[in-house]
């Protein structure tokens, strides 16, 4: 709790300083003196103040609510991390390999990742959902999902 809140507070302070610095380079309004920088700078001060409060409370051991710890050895965290990576991979492969193939593999893999081992059922659901989503978007909403440049589309 102390560590995670300290990290969150520090990140907040970092963002706040960065935003304030970048916004200071924005042009000033010559007439009313409140230009594009005013809001971001005011908000960065607000974020900074509450980040400092969070950090101080954490360092004093007075954080308001308890939070979970973060350990890369935790199988749950590992699964969540892999699912994020799989989603990123899915996004990267979407244009090249097309929605139909990517979605089938992706759904099947995520079910597998969550320790489902009923392979036939997983394959049927993956295929059915992929086809249904594609057809609904194509026929119903007139949106063609990527078919894949690999196949010349």
């Amino acid at each position: 709790m102390k560590l995670t809140d300290s990290i969150a507070g520090s990140i907040g302070i970092g963002i706040s300083i960065y935003v304030f610095y970048v916004a200071s380079g924005f042009p000033e309004d010559q007439v009313i003196k409140v230009g594009p920088a005013f809001f971001p700078q005011a908000l960065s001060v607000g974020l900074g103040v509450f980040s400092i409060v969070l950090l101080v409370l954490a360092l004093k051991g007075k954080s308001e609510v308890s939070t979970e710890t973060f350990s890369l050895k935790d199988p749950g965290i590992q699964r969540a991390g892999i699912s994020v990576l799989a989603t990123a991979l899915f996004c990267l492969a979407l244009n090249t390999f097309g929605f139909l193939l990517c979605s089938f593999i992706y759904i099947f893999f995520l079910s597998f990742l969550m320790k489902d081992r009923r392979y036939l059922e997983m394959a049927v659901v993956s295929a059915a959902v992929t086809a249904a989503v594609y057809l609904v978007f194509k026929a119903f909403l007139d949106i063609t999902l990527p078919l894949g440049t690999l196949y010349g589309f």
């Binding site: 963002i15 916004a23 042009p27 594009p36 908000l43 974020l47 980040s51 409060v53 409370l57 308001e64």
Partner: peptide
Amino acid sequence: IKGLMVGFLGLLISTIGFDPISGYPRF
């Protein structure tokens, strides 16, 4: 505190893009 921090973060995210008055691109 966390709610307010996230609120300010959201407000900062809302400033990304063209400035609504001058049109200056921010972040």
